[in-house]
Computed example of a mutant assay.
Amino acid sequence: MGKIASGQPDLARRVATGSFTGTGAGAWMEVGGSAFNVVLSGTFVATVVGEYSFDGGVTAVPATTRDGAEFSVAAPGAWTGEQPEPGVLFRLRCASFTSGTVAWRISR
């Protein structure tokens, strides 16, 4: 959902945000049972991948697109996903990093 205007509250039911300035993983967010949004912004040279967990965050499984390709992004943009199974977690992980800051947002 996002914000209607700057300074207004976010209308999404759940939101996780953060940034990468090196390799590493962001926080898990529960996305199961719904559609969700992923946004990457900033000026960066990095590759960010998506990961699911079906066991409460113990094991990370690579997220794939509808055509079976791994969700791997090297430029700013916005994407949507859908996870019909309740209780599934999703996170972003910076797999390679050269420079800049990768700001990220996951919402549902």
Rank of each mutant, 00 (worst) to 15 (best):
G2D: 11
K3C: 11
K3F: 09
I4F: 08
A5Q: 11
A5T: 14
A5W: 12
G7A: 04
Q8A: 15
Q8V: 11
P9L: 05
P9M: 04
D10M: 07
L11V: 13
A12G: 15
R13N: 14
R13H: 14
V15M: 10
V15C: 03
G18C: 02
G18S: 05
G18N: 04
G22K: 12
G22R: 12
G22L: 09
A25I: 12
A25C: 10
G26Q: 01
G26A: 05
M29H: 14
M29A: 14
M29V: 15
E30Y: 05
V31S: 02
V31W: 01
G32P: 15
G32Q: 14
G33A: 15
G33K: 13
A35S: 14
F36D: 00
F36S: 00
F36M: 00
N37S: 14
V38E: 01
V39L: 07
V39F: 06
V39R: 06
S41E: 15
F44W: 01
F44M: 01
F44P: 02
V45M: 00
V45I: 05
A46E: 02
V48C: 03
V48G: 02
V49H: 03
V49E: 08
G50I: 09
G50N: 12
G50D: 07
G50Y: 08
Y52N: 00
S53Q: 09
S53N: 06
F54N: 06
F54W: 09
D55A: 07
D55I: 09
D55Q: 04
D55P: 02
G56A: 12
G56Q: 07
V58M: 07
V58L: 12
T59P: 01
A60R: 05
A60D: 06
A60T: 04
A60I: 05
V61K: 03
P62G: 09
P62C: 03
P62D: 11
A63L: 01
T64R: 07
T65W: 05
A69D: 10
F71T: 04
F71C: 01
F71K: 00
S72K: 02
S72F: 00
S72A: 07
S72P: 00
S72Q: 00
A74E: 10
A74Q: 04
A75N: 08
A75D: 07
P76V: 13
P76I: 14
P76M: 11
G77R: 03
G77V: 14
G77F: 08
A78E: 13
A78F: 08
T80P: 00
T80Y: 07
P84T: 15
E85A: 15
E85M: 13
G87C: 15
V88W: 06
L89K: 10
F90C: 01
F90G: 03
F90M: 04
R93M: 09
R93L: 06
C94Q: 03
S96R: 04
T98I: 14
T98K: 08
S99D: 14
S99L: 11
G100T: 08
G100M: 05
G100E: 07
T101H: 03
V102M: 04
A103T: 14
R105M: 07
R105N: 09
I106V: 15
I106F: 04
I106Q: 01
